[in-house]
Amino acid sequence: MINARTLVIGFDLPSFARACMPHGTCYADRLGVLPVTPGPSGWITVERQTDQIRLHLLRHPTDAPVFWREVYVRDHIMEERFFTLAELAFSRLLVASSLSFRRFRGAYAEVLPWLVRLLGAVNDHFAQELAQRGGDQNQVMARFSVLGLDISPESPQTKKNAKARAERLVPYEDAQYRCEWHGKRVWDRDRVHFSLPIAEHDGRILIGAFVGHLST
C-alpha cells in the first residue's frame, strides 16, 4: 500500500498501472495496483531511493475484496469506519443497522482479525457450501472448521425457546429475517449471528447481530 500523495521515484514499473479504488477514487489515501500484464495478486515491497513502500497487486477486479479485507487489519481501521468498507470487502453480505461492536465482550482490536476472517468466509463460502452439501449442516460446519472457524446453527433446544427465537429475528428494510447460524470467537463469548441466503436479496446473507452471547 502507498500513500496516494506519494510518488514512486526512480523506478519504472511499465507493467503496472496504479489504480485508485473504488471507481477511480481514493479511500483513506490508499491505492491498489492493477497489473496490466498477468501475474499473482498480493503484497510486494518496492525499493525506492530513500525508503520502501508496500504495494498490493491486483491481478483481476475479483481479487479486490481480499485487498480490502487486509486493509482492515493492516491499517487498523477504526471501529466507527468499519462498515464504510463492508460493501467492498464483503459484497455478498447485508449488515443490520443495529450492529455494534460494544456488544462483543472482547475489545475491538482483539475481535477485528477474527471478525474479518469470519465475514470473509461467510461471504465466499457459506451459500455455496449449503448448496453443494444439500443443506447438510454438519458438512458445512466441517468445511468451516477446516478454515479455522467455528460456526453452527442454533440447537433444537434454542429453537424451542420463544425468547431465544425472538432475539434472532432481525429487521432489514421492510422485513425480518431469522439469523439462526452463528460464528463464535471463543467457546463462551463473542458471536456473530447470520441468516441463510435470502432469495429476495439475490441470495445475500444478513449479518444480524454482534453479541457476547444470546439466550439459548
Rank of each mutant, 00 (worst) to 15 (best):
V36Y: 05
E110N: 13
E173Q: 14
V73F: 01
Y72Q: 06
N161G: 07
F101N: 08
H213W: 08
T62S: 12
V73K: 02
E79H: 02
S41V: 11
T6F: 11
S15Q: 09
R48T: 15
G10A: 05
V95R: 02
V186P: 00
F83I: 01
D75V: 06
G135V: 00
Q49V: 15
D75Y: 08
R103M: 11
F210N: 03
G39D: 03
C20K: 11
W43F: 15
Q132K: 13
H56N: 12
R117S: 11
A175F: 12
I53M: 10
A199R: 14
S15I: 00
I77L: 11
K159Q: 13
E180R: 10
L112E: 08
R30G: 14
R59C: 10
R105P: 04
E167I: 00
G120Y: 02
N138H: 12
R18G: 01
P38R: 05
T84Q: 08
A109S: 07
D190T: 14
E110S: 14
T45E: 15
E70D: 15
P197R: 03
F82T: 04
R189F: 03
G183E: 04
E80A: 06
L214V: 06
C26R: 05
D75N: 12
S152V: 02
I198R: 02
D136H: 12
K159P: 01
V95C: 03
V122K: 04
E200G: 06
I151D: 04
P153D: 06
L147E: 12
T6I: 04
R105K: 15
A96F: 00
M78V: 10
G203N: 06
D150R: 13
L13R: 06
E87D: 12
R54F: 06
Y172P: 06
A162R: 14
R102T: 15
N161D: 15
S91R: 08
E167A: 07
I205N: 02
P153E: 05
F82Y: 09
L196H: 02
R48P: 01
N161P: 06
L88K: 03
D174F: 05
Y177K: 08
D124W: 00
V122E: 03
Q128N: 08
L88A: 05
R54M: 11
F11Q: 09
H201W: 10
V116R: 07
R204Y: 00
F90H: 03
T216F: 01
P171K: 04
C179H: 04
D29R: 14
H182L: 01
M21P: 02
F16M: 08
L214M: 08
P153A: 06
H60I: 10
G32K: 01
F82V: 03
H213C: 11
N3L: 11
F16E: 07
F83M: 01
Y72N: 06
Q52Y: 15
Q176N: 12
P153I: 01
A64Y: 02
